[in-house]
């Protein structure tokens, strides 16, 4: 009987041979031959590399990232005043500090601080009057107001956190200082945040 081809594989040309012979050398289909391992690894690799796009699509998209940075014109801010703008969905305080506020902040550099930071670390060199902080209380996220509290800085009405004129936590439940975002001075009057 001539060997038949059906499609592209041959029918076995033995008359009997119904059972897969698991003891024939090297032909146990369950044996972990290299090729089977390779195929299984390839399958795993396909699933893993396809998983990344599905995970990454939940990361911020192009239009969200477009609003990730904002440029601000500092000429709008008077001495001793702060402006609140929305940045990345959160309030951003841009404050032009008076000399007194700066001095008070430097004086407390060595005080007992929960989150120790010098005032110098919280502003750009040579621009001590400009304080840029995210206006979200580091306790549970309320927006602090300026001019309340015991340290001349911000006060959060929700649970009574007190911040000083450098935005450092002095009293109350908040664990860390008001966050200073990434920002750069594009010129003396323009700052880019984010």
């Amino acid at each position: 009987m001539r060997p038949q081809t059906k499609g592209s594989f041959k029918v076995a040309d033995t008359v009997v041979g119904a059972n897969p012979d698991t003891h024939a050398a090297g032909d146990d289909p369950n044996r972990r031959d290299f090729i089977h391992i390779a195929a299984a690894v390839a399958a795993g690799g396909a699933v893993a590399s396809l998983a990344w796009p599905f995970i990454d699509q939940m990361n911020p998209s192009g239009d969200t990232l477009a609003l990730a940075s904002v440029e601000f014109d500092l000429t709008k801010v008077e001495l001793g005043q702060q402006v609140v703008i929305k940045w990345r969905g959160k309030p951003l305080f841009i404050r032009k500090r008076t000399g007194a506020e700066i001095a008070a902040a430097i004086k407390d550099d060595t005080a007992d601080l929960r989150d120790p930071q010098t005032d110098e670390e919280r502003h750009k060199p040579g621009k001590a009057e400009w304080l840029v902080v995210i206006g979200t209380c580091t306790h549970l996220g309320c927006v602090p107001t300026f001019g309340g509290g015991d340290f001349g800085g911000w006060f959060c009405p929700c649970h009574g956190s007190h911040y000083d004129t450098s935005g450092r936590i002095r009293k109350g439940p908040a664990p860390t200082n008001l966050a200073v975002p990434d920002y750069t001075f594009l010129s003396d009057t323009k700052v880019k945040v984010g």
């Binding site: 041979g17 089977h36 390779a38 195929a39």
Partner: peptide
């Protein structure tokens, strides 16, 4: 997968 398939089915009519 093709090679794997052929190997597994080699002894089955």
């Amino acid at each position: 997968l093709w090679v794997s398939y052929r190997k597994i089915w080699k002894n089955v009519a």
